[in-house]
Computed example of a mutant assay.
Amino acid sequence: MDAFLPALVTFFVIIDPIGIAPVFATLTEGASRAHRIRMAVRATVLAALILTGFAYGGAYLLGAMGISLDAFRGAGGVLLFLIAMDMIFEKRSERREKRTSDFQEKHHEAASDISVFPMAIPLMAGPGAIATIMLYMKQAGGDAQSQMAVLGAAGAVLLLCLTVLLLVGPIMRLVGDTVAQTIGRILGVILAALAVQLIFDAIGNTFGV
């Protein structure tokens, strides 16, 4: 169990449940409570499956495909940057306003499914979290107790994510549309910066800059 606390702290910093909560609120703005709950639960489950899969087979999979972890990090940065642009220029708000003209489209929430991307990956189970769980599992070696400690730490942080995501909706609604839109644009800029940093890190590690 010596690996649990260090892994817990590392996963908490990397995944940042508090940081992704406002992003979730912005991306699901205007959706029903049932849709928010479904997105939060689905994203958490998918993130858990992704991290578990990479914990046991990530190194083999990337190696077999000839993909470096830095290439994976760079791809995650590009995808995250695209989402950030959507948030900054409120493209999602424009699409949502168009859907309100038709009752059926207004309630067709599958079109705004954000559980896989960007919530599960790259926000909850992104390159940083994947690299972290692969590193800790490698350090655990064949010790089953240490492996369970690492998985337990990741699971605890994901459960915290789920709790925060379920509670953030009502809180964000209280602040009003104007403040929510402002927060969304600020978060979009922050996400864009994070995406660029991921790309820079990938390039720097690849070329030894």
Rank of each mutant, 00 (worst) to 15 (best):
Met87Asp: 03
Ile14Met: 12
Arg96Pro: 06
Val175Glu: 05
Ala110Thr: 14
Ile37Arg: 08
Asp102Leu: 13
Ile15Gly: 01
Met148Asn: 09
Ala131Pro: 01
Gly19Trp: 02
Ala3Gln: 08
Asp70Met: 15
Phe103His: 15
Ala131Ser: 10
Leu194Lys: 05
Arg42Glu: 01
Ala193Arg: 07
Ala131Glu: 00
Leu198Tyr: 11
Asp70His: 12
Gly74Lys: 09
Pro118Leu: 04
Tyr136Arg: 12
Thr44Ile: 00
Ile20Leu: 14
Thr206Asn: 05
Leu49Gln: 02
Val179Lys: 05
Leu165Phe: 07
His107Lys: 15
Phe89His: 14
Gln139Asp: 13
Phe54Tyr: 10
Ile14Cys: 07
Arg96Lys: 12
Arg96Cys: 02
Gly63Phe: 08
Gly63Asn: 13
Ala48Thr: 10
Gly169His: 10
Met65His: 12
Ala31Phe: 10
Phe117Pro: 00
Ile186Thr: 14
Ala125Arg: 00
Ala153Thr: 04
Gly208Ile: 07
Val196Phe: 09
Pro127Glu: 10
Ala110Ser: 15
Asn205Lys: 14
Ala144Phe: 09
Met134Ile: 10
Arg92Phe: 03
Gly188Val: 04
Phe200Met: 15
Ala7Pro: 13
Asn205Ile: 10
Ala154Cys: 15
Leu159Trp: 03
Tyr56Thr: 05
Thr100Ile: 10
Glu94Asp: 09
Ser32Thr: 15
Val23Cys: 02
Ala75Cys: 14
Thr182Ser: 14
Asp16Arg: 03
Ala55Lys: 02
Asn205Pro: 05
Arg185Ala: 04
Ala25Val: 03
Leu165Asn: 04
Ser101Pro: 03
Pro127Asp: 11
Gly128Val: 08
Glu109Asp: 13
Val150Arg: 03
Leu198Ser: 10
Asp70Asn: 15
Phe89Val: 10
Arg99Tyr: 04
Ala110Trp: 12
Asp201Arg: 12
Ile203Ala: 11
Leu61Val: 14
Gly176Asp: 01
Thr44Tyr: 00
Ile199His: 08
Asp70Gly: 07
Gln181Asn: 08
Met87Glu: 02
Asn205His: 12
Ala129Ile: 00
Arg73Ser: 01
Gly188Trp: 10
Ala180Glu: 13
Ile121Trp: 03
Pro170Asp: 03
Leu151Ser: 00
Met134Tyr: 02
Ala75His: 12
Thr100Tyr: 13
Asp70Ile: 07
Phe11Ile: 04
Ala149His: 01
Ile50Gln: 03
Leu8Gly: 04
Leu5Asp: 00
Val175Asn: 04
Pro118Cys: 01
Val45Thr: 02
Leu61Lys: 02
Ile183Phe: 12
Ala7Asp: 01
Asp86Met: 13
Ser101Cys: 08
Met134Thr: 02
Arg92Thr: 05
Phe103Thr: 15
Ala64Met: 11
Leu80Gly: 07
Ile186Gln: 06
Tyr56Val: 06
Asp86Ser: 13
Gly57Val: 07
Ala111Tyr: 08
Ala43Trp: 01
Leu198Phe: 12
Ser93Met: 07
Ile15Ala: 00
Leu158Asn: 02
Leu69Glu: 10
Asp102Ile: 05
Ser93Phe: 06
Asp177Arg: 14
Val179Asn: 04
Ile14His: 08
Ala48Tyr: 04
Leu135Cys: 08
Val189Gly: 09
